[in-house]
Amino acid sequence: MGTALKVLYIAGVGRSGSTLLERVLGTLPGAVNAGELNAIFSRVALQDQRCGCGEPFSACPFWTTVGQRAFGGWAAVTARMAYLQPRVVRQRHVPRLASGLARASYRHELEAYLDITQRLYRAIAFVSGAEVVVDASKSTAQLLALRQVPGLDLRVVNLVRDSRGVAGSWSKAGLRKPQSRTGDTMGTYTPPRAAVLWSALQLECEVLGATTPHATRVRYEDLVARPRATVERALRDVGLPASPGALDHVEDRSVVLAPRHGVAGSRSRFTSGRIELRLDDAWRSTLPAGARRVVTAVTLPQLLAYGYVGPRARALPAGAPR
């Protein structure tokens, strides 16, 4: 298998700023941000979505080279992986992935899925010349599966955002997927559904973090308020401390990001140059009071633990972007 490949995996719930964090981490020397790799077969390749460089996936020279090196071309594996993924790494498969108790047919399909995934990671590292692949897939099922791949050195960052902000974001309808070339819109959840999803996924992230040698948690709110200090601390926690000058692209209230080849994610994928960081707390005025109370009640234990409410609540520093 060769030298272990470092994969810096961002886990958590969607609409929490993972695209921003992934791009910041992928700008570090020796790192490459690949986007949400769990979407590369099921959506990106099948729908020929736009790469972060702006080109359609099929026309992007980086991903074309990756596909050739890994599989002899994307056509050789895309349909197979789009079939396998929902069968082996959906959220409902978390218990069997965690316990290892599964039928032989499931284990056989999982092995096939992980073999192709491992080849993908190694091709990304080879083509980019990077030592660390940053993957913003977020899925805990995908992370549990990756833990079974020999030769992957997983480092995990659990990115968490206030559950009420997540619920507010998921309730917005009609948001266009920026990477789509056909005008597709992003999915929605009702606030109660988003709260249950947030609570369950965060519980899984806590368990995974406790059983992973190199893992940490980052609050979205801290990332936008204190980007440099937050990223520095996270990198130390996962055993990848930043070298002198490695975080020159991270400033007090902004980050400087160039176009890269990450796939899927939010509209911030296609914003480059100096990006001023502003806390998205629109939920405070847009999330109905009743929905806010429901989300708070469902997620209260974790809101307390993470310092969002209660006596341990951590306020943003004076003058921080709001």
Rank of each mutant, 00 (worst) to 15 (best):
R80G: 10
V89S: 00
T3E: 13
R226D: 14
H261E: 07
E111M: 01
E206Q: 12
L152M: 09
R15N: 10
L223E: 04
P178Q: 12
K6C: 05
A98N: 10
P259V: 11
A31R: 03
R96L: 15
M186C: 05
L287I: 09
V255P: 01
Q142E: 00
A98Y: 02
G100Y: 14
L175W: 03
V77Y: 07
V156D: 00
S128Q: 05
A234H: 05
K177T: 02
V133C: 03
G54A: 13
A79K: 10
E55P: 00
L316A: 15
P288Y: 14
R292L: 06
L247T: 02
A112Y: 02
R161Q: 09
A79Q: 14
E276C: 04
V7D: 02
T185V: 15
S169Q: 04
R278D: 09
V298P: 04
V250K: 03
I116D: 00
E22C: 09
T296Q: 11
G239N: 10
S266I: 09
F126E: 15
A291C: 10
K6D: 14
G14Q: 09
H214A: 15
R50S: 13
G165Y: 11
V196W: 09
V132R: 04
P244W: 13
Y220N: 13
S266T: 14
P321G: 14
A215K: 13
T296D: 07
V160K: 08
L114G: 01
F57C: 02
S171V: 02
G129V: 11
A242Y: 04
E36M: 02
S99N: 06
A76S: 11
L257H: 08
P95D: 05
E131M: 02
T188V: 14
A76P: 03
V309F: 05
G319M: 13
L101W: 08
V166A: 13
R193H: 11
A70V: 14
D248E: 13
A229R: 09
L201Y: 01
N33T: 09
T216C: 15
H93G: 01
N33C: 09
C53T: 11
R80K: 13
A125E: 07
Y83I: 07
A242G: 05
P192S: 12
R284V: 11
D184N: 12
P301E: 05
A34H: 00
G100R: 10
R164D: 08
L110H: 02
L159Q: 06
S163D: 10
L303T: 02
L287M: 09
R23F: 05
Q202Y: 12
L21S: 06
D184W: 08
A167N: 07
T140K: 00
L25R: 01
T65G: 09
S139P: 04
F71I: 10
G129L: 07
P227D: 03
A291D: 15
Y220T: 06
R69K: 15
D48F: 00
A173F: 06
R90Q: 14
A318K: 06
P311V: 14
L304S: 08
H93A: 02
G245P: 00
K172F: 04
A289E: 14
Q47E: 15
S128E: 07
G310W: 11
S42E: 00
A4H: 05
I124F: 02
R90Y: 12
R292N: 09
R219H: 12
A258L: 08
H249I: 08
L240Y: 14
V196P: 00
E36S: 07
G72I: 10
R293V: 11
C51R: 10
G2C: 08
P178Y: 11
L223N: 07
